[in-house]
């Protein structure tokens, strides 16, 4: 089964959100369970990034590249960038992998690679 990250679509007005929120930012609908999960696209473009050299202690790497991607449907997401020489505006693919692990478990999240 392919892993998937979901956006949250307002049942009243159709506005898509990521990450989850309780009240729609557009129409302010505030019914409980007012959002339908919708799979997010796996393609987008890199808006910005940074090569980070001071990482929290549970990362066992010297450097990590983080970035913000605008997906094909206009939703933006933050994730890890695994591209040797990234450029803003470049096309990327979204992969779901382990992004952080500690003695308490693993977090799955988005890793961007060149499309």
């Amino acid at each position: 089964m392919e892993l998937q990250v979901y956006g949250y679509k307002c049942r009243k007005c159709g506005q898509l959100h990521y990450p989850f929120r309780m009240v729609c930012k557009k129409c302010k609908a505030n019914e409980p369970h007012g959002f339908d999960p919708v799979p997010l696209p796996k393609k987008g473009k890199l808006l910005t990034y940074t090569d980070l050299s001071t990482l929290p202690a549970d990362f066992n790497v010297a450097q990590l590249t983080l970035g913000i991607v605008e997906l094909e449907n206009g939703i933006r997401v933050t994730g890890q960038v695994r591209i040797p020489k990234p450029k803003t505006g470049m096309a990327v693919r979204i992969n779901i992998e382990t992004v952080r692990s500690s003695e308490f478990g693993k977090n799955l999240g988005m890793v961007f690679t060149a499309a």
Partner: peptide, 27 residues
């Protein structure tokens, strides 16, 4: 300080305040 970021959409990736500032600076 990074614990003030979004726990699921930012923090888990290793996002810290310096990294947000780095991405902002590039733009």
């Amino acid at each position: 300080v990074a614990t003030l970021t979004h726990p699921l959409a930012e923090y888990i990736y290793g996002v810290t305040l310096p990294s947000l500032a780095g991405m902002f600076t590039r733009l």
